[in-house]
Every structure is written in structure tokens, then in C-alpha cells.
Design a protein around this nucleic acid. Structure first.
Lengths: 233, 233
DNA sequence: CGCCCATTTGAGCGGAATCAAGATCAGTGG
DNA sequence: CCACTGATCTTGATTCCGCTCAAATGGGCG
């Protein structure tokens, strides 16, 4: 019934303890809502409750919409991420696919209800929360105190950690987001993002190929330019 | 009258389920480390592990220290808050008292170990995490997309929600933080903070008395000026 | 009362936003 | 395979908001 490539199997592999009772496994499978998104498609939440979303394939952005055209991208998410989407009644956040994606959507309350008896799951959820919180705090530093150059360097390093492919002493990135989306994430305009990339390219620190291939030639130099000493995954 | 209840009792009252087994209660009490901080004193973590900190009394700021003099305040915390302090080996965050404060410090791993059998505690912890994450995301919006005026308005409203005393249709704030600290939280300089407060005072939207009393005369007007439609708790 | 330091106010500057063209890339259809 | 097309991205010129530097004011405490 369940193939290896199916979203729920990937979820179980990534998130659930291996010794989980079959009954609970089935229950979780029963409340999981599969959801396929085409690139740029918005995840539409059925109901108004808080959701837990596992990204089985593809990538997505969590967006806060403001008055007028203003949007702030709260974060990017990639395959394997397990994130909480606050209930839309309180915050106008939406999850939008960057490329074709497969999601698994849970009602947070249902999920926690089922997980109650399994401390392992709750603890994993707690760990995920901690990771998200750390990323968000890191973002506060970027947005609060860094200049354009430092933001760009921080962004590239962060992407390198999450989706970079190491090759010799360089790192190859295939960015699923546009310049505009990078800007909306970093609190910069598209023009500034473009200019900073040009500066880094001129300084031989990065190479760009096409619109979304970037090769980090000197990650350690990016590190220097990213400002601040604090650094971790 | 005994003026101050004991920190652990306050913690139990605020965080622990009322039907908690006595044994577990005692165990938690045993691993809790009491900690009194004078104003501006830094919380010094014994050991390098992740900590969970309950603020029994007073208030504190969570600070990220950067190269040189740069500091970003990640968040303010008040009595009743239960927060996670990442292990100092990975991020250089410190908790600093804004005024005299009483804390309860747990090793996160020990705490979770004990709480494993009590889903109620883990769930509460999870809820706290969710609140912290929401606040942090809200901060990303403020820092990423708002101008000085909107940041100031957002800050005042946020403080009103957390430590404001409602009086008729106005709200009284007693701010435990300095202008500099407000600036470091909002990604602004002390001068800009001061100027924005002056503008709001001139517009009759707020009154200030002394250095840290603020009265919000027209919260709804602040709301308008805070930008963005998203608003909650 | 008088000192010290936080805050306020003022003047000028600078970095990123905005406005405005061009250049380049990815499809599309001939 | 290549020309056409529209969107995305890059580059340039100018503007403006918030930072920096500097000075004045005022609150709080001895």
C-alpha cells in the first residue's frame, strides 16, 4: 500500500521514532492530509486551526502579508522540514511553494493529541521548534543589525548549510527562489540584492550561472563578510 | 504577609499541571537552579548545555552579541515567561536582567528527561515554544519591512499587551528598558527612538512621564501607524 | 544644590530605496 | 535551430530616511 517514495513514508522516516507502535503509525497516517502544490501555488488551509506541515518534496516560503504590496518572507523551507503554520485567524501567514512540492498537512491539535502518549514524538517536535526558533532569532540579527553586504553573505552561507552541495572546497547552490524573494526575505530590494551579488562576483568570491546557480568559491571569505562572530548551523 | 512567593512555587503555578505526581514535582525542584540577578547583571550559565529559564520576578533581555559593539536584542522577557537559552557554544546569546530579577534555571536535557512521562508538561513547553516563535516571527516583520515610526508603534503595542495596565481607554506602561535597549531591539539608534517618541507625543498619541512611564492615549491610532494588517495576541 | 549620565534636539552625511533604462534569460512557435 | 516575447535581472541616476556626530537639556541621586 505505502510505497517508499510516498510522503507519509518519508515523514515517518524523518520524524517518527523507528519503534513506533503500528496502531499509532496508522492513526497518524489517517489524519495526515496530502497536498501537492505547483510552483508558486499557495497552500490553502482547510479550517482555521494551527497546522503542522511536513515538506516531503520541493521547497516553500512562509510569507507574512502586509498592507498594500508589502510582504516579508519569514523563512524558506526545504524537503525534510517540519514546520508550524499559525492559525490564519491570528496572523496572515501563508505557505507558498517555490517549486513543485509535496506536503503533508496535520491539524496541530490532532497531531499532539495522538502524540501525547509518545514522548519521543513530542520531543522531536520540541527539537524542531527549537531549530525554527534559532533560525528565526538568527534572522532577527540579520534584519536588525546587518548591512546589505552582510545580509547577502549570511543568506548564501545559510543556504549553503541547508541545500548546498559540497565540491572540493567550493559549494554549489541551486536556488529555488527569485531575486525578489531573496530580497523579501532579507529586507532588501531586488536591486540591492542584484548589486550585492555583482560585487561578490567581481570579488571572485562567488560565480553565478544562469539565474539560480551559484557557486561559492570562497565560503570563508563570505564568513568574514557576514559580520558578527556568532555562527552555527 | 510573606511578600515573595518562592520561585519554584510560582513556576509550578504557572507551568506545571495541577495533578502532577509529588515525586516528579520534587525531582523538578531538585534540578531547578535558583538565580537572583541584580539590574544589568548577566545570567552566567554553569556548563555549556541548553537551558530552560523561568522568570519568576523582574524582567530580562535576550541579547546576541556581535563583532565590535554591535548588539541585537532578540527579545524582552517578563515575569511568568519560560524561555529557552541555546547552548552558548553555538550562539553567543546572553540573558541580562533589566531590573532585579529572580530566575529558575533548568538544564533543558534534564528537564525534558523528567518530563518525558508527563505529556502535559511537554505540551506546555511546546505551547511556550510556539508563542516564542510567533513573537520572533513578528519581530522579523518589524525588522524587515517597517520604518522607524511603525517600529515604535509596534513596540509600544507589544509592550502594552505584555505589561500594560489598562485604565479607562488608555494604557499605562512602566518600561524597564532604556532608550538604548529599545533601539537595540528595534534595529534603530537611540536618537531615532527618541525622535519617534517625540513625534508621537506631539501628536497627542502618547504621554511620557519621567524616563520610563508612557501612557498610550490612543492605542487605536498606534495600531494604524504600526503598519500591516496582521495583528494578534 | 550640583554633578553625572540618559535623553533630546540639531545639522549633515551616507547607504539603500526609488525611479528609469537596458540586458539577459527561458519559453514558445515558426 | 532560431527569432520573438515577456519576465527577470542588471546597471545607472537621484532621492530620502535613518545614522553619525555634536551640542543642549533634564532627570535622578548623592
Amino acid at each position: 500500500m505505502i510505497e517508499a517514495t510516498e510522503p507519509f513514508a518519508m515523514f515517518a522516516e524523518a520524524i517518527l521514532p523507528s519503534d513506533l507502535p503500528d496502531a499509532l503509525y496508522m492513526h497518524l497516517g489517517a489524519i495526515a492530509e496530502q497536498c501537492e502544490l505547483a510552483a508558486h501555488e499557495v497552500q490553502t488551509h482547510s479550517g482555521d486551526a494551527e497546522k503542522l506541515i511536513f515538506i516531503a518534496q520541493g521547497s516553500a516560503k512562509l510569507v507574512a502579508k502586509g498592507a498594500g504590496e508589502r510582504e516579508q518572507i519569514i523563512g524558506f523551507h526545504f524537503a525534510g522540514d517540519f514546520l508550524r503554520l499559525p492559525c490564519p485567524c491570528e496572523h496572515s501567514y501563508t505557505l507558498v511553494a517555490l517549486e513543485d512540492a509535496q506536503l503533508l498537512v496535520f491539524s496541530a491539535s490532532q497531531f499532539v493529541e495522538l502524540a501525547r502518549g509518545e514522548p519521543g514524538i513530542l520531543q522531536h517536535l520540541l527539537d524542531q521548534s527549537a531549530t525554527m526558533l534559532d533560525r528565526s532569532r538568527e534572522k532577527s540579527i540579520v534584519l536588525g543589525r546587518k548591512n546589505a553586504c552582510e545580509r547577502m553573505a549570511s543568506f548564501l552561507l545559510s543556504m549553503a548549510r541547508r541545500i548546498g552541495e559540497e565540491q572540493a572546497d567550493t559549494i554549489r547552490l541551486t536556488l529555488p527562489m527569485s531575486r525578489r524573494e531573496i530580497g523579501e526575505s532579507l529586507g532588501l530590494t531586488i536591486e540591492t540584492v542584484s548589486r550585492q551579488l555583482t560585487l561578490l562576483r567581481d570579488a571572485q568570491i562567488i560565480e553565478t550561472h544562469g539565474r539560480n546557480q551559484v557557486i561559492l568559491r570562497h565560503p570563508e571569505e563570505l564568513q568574514k563578510r557576514s559580520g558578527w562572530l556568532t555562527r552555527a548551523n
